[in-house]
Design a binder for these strands. Structure first.
Lengths: 325, 325
DNA sequence: AGCCTGTGCACCGTGAAAGCG
DNA sequence: CCGCTTTCACGGTGCACAGGC
């Protein structure tokens, strides 16, 4: 059986194509009797509207596209899933893209865009937003454009919590492990860490104690092993939990006790942080709350084309055993 | 500036719409001079073809849709990313869906479907495949339908490796931790485990030693804690790595040494298995190879509408320190 | 006249067959 | 045969309008 079209239904129901269209779209221009008849036939033919045709005519799909830098890692997946759940309940369909911004996003098929951890500099994103001409919600960048909004983590506050915890611990030789260079979150965390370090220790050597773990536990493991063998640091502030795990691994290799000999803190509160021993002290952003705010902002943008707005979400400190205090 | 269409370009270039279309699609029906002129104008106008119109006309998008049960967890994300990378290189665009099968998949916008870990019984999937009328590659189910193919893990072989390792170890009181009930992989692993257990120990009490960890490390942690407190088991065969981590956690709480007092094996070789201490013995499916085979099968299906085919990928045993031997 | 129900038709942007000089 | 144009169809939408009561 080939795909049924409005024309097929019209022929069988003995009405015009327009009537079928009205009937299926619940317009009041059709009597209830006719509508029922048409719906019945449509059902029997297993009719599925042709989205391309619909969209060509109306310029309006209910498709929202989330663009992420990668599907890998715990963070993006968790957030995507939360957003997906919310949108599904509201009758939208979320599709996800990873990698470079695909052409399809620029076409009329997509109604709006959510952007998570996408790696690009601000001017590039500005330009993209301008040419795109549909609502965008940024989740990791603060962009100032009409028709866009940002819902981001308050990275500064998160780093403040973590830094304060380490300051209070007996391990004070702090090493900072950043994510990769293209990450906006990592950049913000870096700036915050620098601020608190400089203010607190009254020293200007912050940059000497920063290393890039590229958000990768293996890379971080190698860094950690080197530092611990030389007893160079005894406290590690990692810009995400995965990297913190790398330090755990290095410590374990060298028979060094996390939470006693050294202190480690992470960021994100991914599931691993509660499963390792001792548990990893980290900061948590409520992903459900985040997802809800993102969807809210999206709907507002779509409804009103209102100007941009930046919402900051406050993370919470999750204390576990990885800090010696 | 509003969206430019072929018509706009045609007006400016002083040619017909058809010529513009030919020119941009590199047809030989246009002189090089005209083509260059038209391409230049298209570029200046920032022309982006309207996918809906294109698709309506050609019934052919280059969009492939991956459907997963969830974006969460390490496994799906890793696989999605590999597929994405390959398809991007080949000029296709992959979009991902999570949750129930969305309407859009049934429309002409989507050329084909890849299905990973989707939870449904076989008859439902059969029916879906039949009505869909486009190529589908299943990655976790073996389905017998025309216009579909399966590229799946050889779960039996993987379980055989793991079981043999545990058999050789000094810890022989084996407990099996399964994933959730809807998972086809978990079901296959269960059957294989039962087969090897029964054959090897010549006992019929397999089902007494099987517990569902629901692919969840927290659930598994609680199970593990109970078993270890009662010294009920000293070997754990977990149907994925995340759950194995739950056992690690329980062992650590009770000061029990993994790799000595107890043995643990996992499945998947996700990144955590190399980061924990001692490293987790597990089996690995080469995700890159898997992704490549999936894409191959998809392209073959698309080209030839060939009948179904099942490809099984052999996992490899990855020995680390979590087994006492 | 005015309401109700249904129809004819132009149109969205593109691709390709057929026609033409 | 080359290079370009005319014309039409894809599937659906919604305006303007027609005809009946």
């Amino acid at each position: 059986m080939e795909k049924a079209s409005l024309k097929d239904i019209a022929r069988i129901a003995n009405v015009s194509v327009a009537t079928v269209s009205y009937a299926l779209n619940n317009s009041s221009q059709v009597s209830e009797v006719t509508r029922a008849k048409i719906k019945k036939i449509a059902n029997e033919l297993n009719y599925i509207p042709n989205l391309s045709a619909q969209n060509l005519r109306t310029n309006n799909s209910n498709l929202i596209c989330a663009i992420v830098n990668t599907y890998q890692g715990n963070f993006n997946g968790d957030v995507l899933q939360e957003i997906q759940d919310i949108l599904e309940r509201k009758g939208f369909q979320l599709l996800a893209f990873s990698g470079s911004i695909p052409d399809i996003v620029k076409t009329d098929i997509i109604d709006g865009v959510l952007m998570l951890n996408y790696r690009a500099d601000s001017t590039e994103l500005q330009q993209f937003t301008n040419t795109l001409n549909k609502p965008i919600v940024f989740m990791t960048n603060e962009i100032n454009t009409a028709n866009s909004a940002s819902v981001v983590i308050d990275n500064r506050l998160g780093i403040k919590y973590l830094f304060d915890v380490l300051k209070k611990s007996k391990n004070e030789r702090i090493c900072f492990i950043t994510g990769d260079d293209n990450s906006f979150n990592s950049e913000q965390r870096y700036n915050a860490a620098k601020e608190f370090y400089t203010k607190s220790f009254k020293k200007n050597d912050f940059s000497q104690h920063v290393y890039s773990g590229q958000y990768d536990p293996i890379v971080t493991y190698q860094l950690g092993k080197r530092f611990l063998e030389n007893d160079q640091y005894d406290a590690f502030l990692c810009f995400n939990d995965d990297m913190a795990l790398g330090i755990y691994h290095a410590a374990s290799d060298l028979n060094i006790k996390v939470g006693k000999d050294i202190s480690i803190v992470g960021f994100d509160d991914s599931y691993v942080s509660s499963v390792v021993s001792p548990g990893l002290t980290t900061v948590q952003v409520d992903k459900k709350e985040w997802a809800e705010e993102v969807v809210n902002q999206y709907l507002e943008l779509k409804a009103s084309k209102s100007t941009n707005k930046v919402v900051k979400l406050s993370p919470k400190l999750i204390l576990r055993g990885s800090v010696n205090q």
